[in-house]
């Protein structure tokens, strides 16, 4: 049956409309969970608040288990799901830049929009920074093209790369997540902060 959009059970224009609804919902939940506070996000790096890690990993695991079980029941054809192609070096470079921006600014792109929506000026400055970054990346693309395209693996999955089944990989991710959650809670106890 699924995925619904590539098989045109849902048309491309309805897809955009539904994406808009999901986006609104996502922003609402982010704001409700307090993610529009840059202190909460920075807490991830100082160790006093690891909610961000837990929320996003729980979300990823829910989606992962959902897709695998849907596939098991024959509700979705995983071969039709778009897999983002991997460019190893730009993924590492981008991760470092994103992580640094995360600590310095106290937002990730999604939460910055949330925080800007409730009127936080630092978030608006952060969004300005995002657009500056996009501008310089686009204009400077010829300079970094070689680095950007290096280490191309195509649309590969880690489970395919190591030759294990998707289910085993999912189980390993879940164990890794649970270990990280536990470490996160230990960190929260070790470096507590009363008010932030």
């Amino acid at each position: 049956m699924g995925p619904l959009v590539p098989q045109e059970i849902i048309s491309a224009s309805w897809n955009l409309f539904i994406a808009f609804g999901i986006g609104i919902g996502f922003g609402f939940v982010l704001e409700q969970a307090g993610f529009s506070s840059s202190r909460k996000l920075a807490g991830m790096f100082y160790g006093y608040d690891t909610v961000v890690l837990k929320v996003f990993f729980t979300g990823a695991i829910t989606a992962m288990l959902g897709l695998l079980f849907f596939s098991l029941f024959g509700w979705i054809d995983l071969s039709l799901i778009y897999v983002n192609p991997t460019f190893l070096w730009s993924a590492i470079g981008g991760g470092v830049i994103m992580g640094a921006g995360f600590i310095i600014g106290g937002f990730c792109p999604g939460t910055s929009v949330c925080a800007a929506a409730i009127g936080k000026i630092d978030a608006m400055v952060f969004i300005g920074g995002i657009f500056l970054g996009i501008f310089f990346f686009a204009e400077g693309y010829p300079l970094i093209k070689d680095f950007y395209m290096a280490g191309s693996f195509g649309p590969i999955k880690i489970s395919d790369f190591f030759g294990i089944s998707g289910g085993v990989m999912a189980f390993l991710v879940i164990i890794a997540a649970l270990v990280m959650f536990k470490l996160g809670e230990l960190a929260e106890k070790k470096w507590p902060r009363e008010e932030y």
């Binding site: 288990l65 079980f69 024959g74 289910g167 189980f171």
Partner: peptide, 24 residues
């Protein structure tokens, strides 16, 4: 409870064979 549920579901999905049949 949620963590245990995740763990159990993960174990199940790790043990069942992958569904490679494609719907017509």
């Amino acid at each position: 409870i949620i963590f245990s549920g995740m763990f159990l579901l993960g174990m199940v999905i790790a043990m069942v064979p992958e569904n490679t049949t494609k719907p017509y």
